[in-house]
Simulated scan of single mutants.
Amino acid sequence: MIVLSILWSLAVIGVLCWLLFTLAVFALPLFLGLAAGTWAHGTGAGWLGAVIVGLVAAGATFTTGQLLLALVRPLWLKLVVLLAFVAPAVVAGYAATHGIVKHTTPSETWQLVFSGVGAVAVGIVAFVRLTALIPSEPPGRGITGA
């Protein structure tokens, strides 16, 4: 029975890590959607209104980011947009890793080290996934005909 619970715990941790890596791209839209929904609820919109405002804000944030990545030409500006999406993913990765590690590692120093490694890993994965969403240049663009 103990072996099954250990295996089950490892499987759950694996699924949660996979979920974290998969959803890290959506950290900024999630945070902004939660903030907008909380604001709407605080102004008296009710639960349904808050959910709708939060979903619209999250969708608008993700769509705006995708449009900026597709339409902006300078590379430095694309990096700014990417960093705006990667920074919340790094924070979420740190928090998620720290939440797991604080239950398994007694040393606070090692908790911070492992949390930092988790944050960097989630940030790299979010950056790679976001760069995969950038449309490539059409063939022949920038080549002048002779």
Rank of each mutant, 00 (worst) to 15 (best):
V128I: 08
A96G: 08
A58L: 06
I100Y: 14
H98L: 04
P88T: 14
A87Y: 13
G33P: 00
P138D: 05
R73E: 11
R73T: 07
V80L: 14
T105D: 00
A36T: 11
V53R: 05
T64N: 05
I143A: 02
V117I: 15
P139F: 12
R129S: 14
G49Y: 10
L69F: 05
W8M: 04
L69T: 11
E137I: 05
V51R: 02
W18V: 05
Y94R: 09
H98K: 03
T109Q: 14
L83A: 14
Q111T: 11
L79S: 01
L10H: 06
G118E: 04
L133A: 09
A45W: 09
G65P: 06
A40Q: 13
L67T: 05
V51L: 13
G65H: 13
R141L: 10
K78P: 01
I2H: 15
A89Y: 12
A95G: 07
I6N: 04
S9H: 13
V25E: 02
A119T: 03
V101K: 14
A27V: 03
F85R: 12
L7K: 07
G59F: 15
V51N: 04
A87D: 00
L133V: 09
G65L: 12
V101T: 14
T97N: 03
A50R: 00
L4H: 15
I143E: 04
T61Y: 09
V51A: 13
A96C: 00
A11V: 05
G49H: 14
A60T: 13
G93H: 14
G65D: 08
I143T: 11
V90D: 03
R73N: 06
L71Q: 07
A89L: 06
W47L: 14
L112E: 05
A58G: 08
T144H: 08
S107N: 15
A96P: 08
P29N: 07
L23I: 03
F31N: 00
L133D: 01
V72A: 03
A50I: 13
G145W: 09
H98V: 01
Y94A: 04
P88V: 12
V15M: 09
W18D: 00
A60E: 12
F85K: 07
G46W: 08
G14Y: 05
G118Q: 03
G142V: 04
